[in-house]
Amino acid sequence: MSAQDLLALAIERSVMVATAESCTGGLIAGAITDIPGSSAVFDRGFVTYTNAAKEQMLGVSGDTLAAFGAVSEPVALEMAEGALSRSDAALTVSVTGIAGPGGGSADKPEGRVCFGLAERGKATFVETVDFGALGRDAVRQATVAHALTLLTTALRQT
């Protein structure tokens, strides 16, 4: 799915979108706002690279971060829900992961990304994707593509 597809559906359904990004550093928001007319449906992007930023900007619980670590489904869930509650969007996506190189562990390998998708009036969806040690740029680009697919799929179901 492309950002163009996402915008067309969001405009058709009058749905505002927001992003909460860690490992992508704003690339998802950038992909969306690269498209002319995106201001009609893109509300804002939160780039929360540090744990402190996740807590301050999105309301992620320090207890959740301590218990599960930043790269976890519980944190992705709280990021997506935090973006939803702190924006005018009706649909948000969050990403938190280990793009590499390095930085991973046996429990959380390089290339692991946790996604959250929050939509007003629906249960928040979370999933983890292991892209593998593809290199930093490839992991980040794969994360952007998957996030756009999640958003587009959600819009098709509304």
Rank of each mutant, 00 (worst) to 15 (best):
Y49I: 14
V15D: 00
V17R: 01
E81I: 15
A52C: 13
R86T: 12
I32R: 02
L77P: 01
T24F: 06
S94A: 15
A70T: 00
Y49A: 14
L27E: 03
T33D: 05
V15T: 05
P74I: 04
Q56R: 14
G69R: 03
L58E: 02
R44L: 12
I32H: 12
S85Q: 10
G62P: 15
D34M: 08
P74A: 10
G69F: 04
S39H: 04
S87T: 14
F68Q: 07
G69W: 00
A20D: 10
E55T: 12
A80S: 13
V41N: 03
E55F: 07
A67F: 09
G59V: 13
A66R: 10
G69L: 05
S94F: 11
T19I: 05
T92Y: 06
K54S: 00
I35D: 01
F68C: 12
Q56F: 09
D43A: 08
L65A: 02
G69I: 11
D63K: 15
F68T: 11
N51L: 15
F68G: 03
M16V: 14
T50L: 15
T48R: 00
M57H: 07
G59C: 05
L58Y: 00
L91S: 12
V71C: 07
S61W: 12
T92K: 03
A80F: 11
L77D: 13
A52V: 15
E21C: 06
M16Q: 09
G37L: 07
S22M: 13
R86L: 15
V71N: 06
G62N: 11
V75G: 00
G30Y: 11
E78D: 11
G62E: 09
F42I: 07
P74W: 03
S39D: 05
G62L: 10
A31N: 05
V95F: 12
A66C: 15
L84G: 09
M16P: 07
D63I: 14
E55S: 14
A76H: 01
T33Y: 07
L91H: 09
V15Q: 04
M79C: 08
A80M: 04
M16A: 07
D43P: 04
Y49S: 07
V60G: 02
A66N: 08
E81P: 14
V71H: 02
G45V: 01
T33L: 07
V41L: 00
D43Q: 01
A40I: 01
E81T: 14
S94W: 06
M57E: 04
A53C: 01
M79L: 13
V15C: 04
C23V: 11
V17K: 01
V15P: 00
V41S: 02
L65P: 00
T48D: 04
S85K: 15
G45C: 09
Y49N: 14
V95Y: 08
L84P: 05
A20Y: 02
T19A: 02
I35Q: 13
I35H: 06
G26Q: 03
G82I: 13
D63N: 15
S39C: 06
I32N: 08
T64G: 09
I32F: 05
K54W: 00
G45H: 01
S61V: 07
A29D: 05
R86A: 14
V75F: 08
A83H: 04
S61E: 07
L65C: 05
T64M: 03
N51K: 06
A67L: 15
E78G: 12
E78S: 13
G25T: 08
D43T: 11
S39K: 02
V47H: 10
R44I: 10
S22I: 04
V71M: 01
G30D: 12
T64V: 03
T92V: 13
